[in-house]
Simulated assay, not measured.
Amino acid sequence: MNAEGDASRGAWLVRNRMTLVSLLAVAVYAIFVQWIWGWPTLFRQWLEIGIVPVLSALALLVATYFIRCYRIYDYFPKETRGRFLQLLRVTQVHNLLNIMLPFRAGETSFPLLMRSEFAVPLARSTSALLLMRMLDLHALFAAAGVGLVLEHDDLRLGWLLWGMFLVSPLLLFFLKGSALGFVERRLPEKLGKLLEDIEAGLPANAVVFVRAWLMTVLNWSTKVAVLAWVLFTMGVAPLGACFGGALGGELSSVLPVHAPAGVGTYPAGITAGAISFGASAKGGAFDLLASASVNAHLLIIVSAVAGTLLSIALSPRR
């Protein structure tokens, strides 16, 4: 009987391991936020900002998680077909671990989760993740560049330069074959299979690449615009500085010095980015910027938790 009970519990843990990991991550976040700030204090700050702006921004940020998930769903169609909600839960766990763990250690969870849940080889999912991160970084700069264009004296020239930067990944894609061929000629034959898995993680054709690129641009344009709007609503000026703050906060999360949950580093990134784009670093304007950066960071944390809870609620039982 004991053996049967242990086996039953073991099978239950295996079936529900993703849900348990998700719930654990959410619980850790809730305890962490209560320990650092206290939930009553946070609720009072959000009420001062306004319920409608906060809920609207939160809904848009959660929507970006669906865009990210669909990008992966479209990238691995054979492995993920008909399992979008399960993939959503995987991507949300990966996102939470990325936010929670320092030094980008959470990135390692993506290839492991994709292998365990969808049988995607590690090399293939790792190469796909690397490409997506490069597209993320490009799209992040492109979205923040809107702030520079808005503050530029010559709008036509500004939009022209921005457009050229926006489409630059399309030109790099066509160099993929030459680069892989160069590496293949210099690799030992034993590593040929590894190179094949890496190449399998890259877009097979320009159509697949363009779809991934467009979804990346949509995702980061939405997120940066929402964060810039939140900062502007809270009184940060000028508008270009709000886009710079959104860029600085997101860039801080990809640096090796990224703190767990971005505590300290994310608000500092917002502040530094906003000042670099023209915000005042003196007096009451700086105090306002500092408090706004903390509130924007809390909104990011809450959206990550809300997205994970939603993915758990929507994910079907297996």
Score class of each variant (00 low, 15 high):
56 S>H: 01
144 A>H: 09
107 E>R: 07
125 S>K: 04
87 L>Q: 00
34 Q>V: 00
227 L>I: 13
311 S>W: 04
148 L>T: 04
86 Q>I: 06
293 S>W: 03
154 D>K: 09
118 F>C: 11
285 A>N: 04
32 F>E: 11
125 S>C: 07
8 S>Y: 02
199 E>R: 15
158 G>T: 10
101 L>C: 05
259 A>R: 06
92 Q>E: 12
217 V>F: 15
316 P>A: 05
142 A>T: 12
291 S>W: 00
314 L>N: 00
12 W>Q: 08
95 N>L: 04
117 E>Y: 07
43 F>A: 11
204 A>E: 11
112 L>H: 12
258 H>G: 09
162 W>Y: 13
165 F>K: 04
177 G>R: 13
151 E>T: 13
73 Y>S: 05
47 L>M: 12
280 S>V: 03
180 L>T: 03
70 Y>R: 12
176 K>H: 07
158 G>I: 10
124 R>N: 11
115 R>D: 10
18 M>D: 05
252 S>E: 10
290 A>Q: 10
199 E>K: 15
128 A>N: 14
118 F>K: 09
288 L>F: 02
174 F>A: 10
240 G>H: 08
72 I>H: 04
159 W>M: 14
51 I>R: 09
222 T>S: 14
2 N>E: 05
283 G>K: 06
41 T>N: 14
236 V>W: 07
76 F>N: 03
305 V>C: 09
213 W>F: 15
262 G>P: 09
114 M>K: 09
158 G>N: 10
71 R>Y: 00
291 S>L: 03
251 L>F: 15
215 M>C: 02
264 G>D: 13
179 A>Q: 09
204 A>P: 00
193 K>N: 08
20 L>W: 14
161 L>T: 08
185 R>M: 13
249 G>E: 12
101 L>A: 11
62 V>F: 05
107 E>G: 07
211 R>Q: 10
245 G>R: 09
300 I>N: 01
141 F>I: 13
173 F>N: 09
137 L>M: 13
40 P>W: 05
49 I>A: 13
34 Q>L: 01
93 V>I: 15
126 T>N: 03
250 E>N: 15
27 A>C: 11
43 F>W: 13
199 E>S: 15
61 L>T: 08
222 T>P: 09
77 P>Q: 05
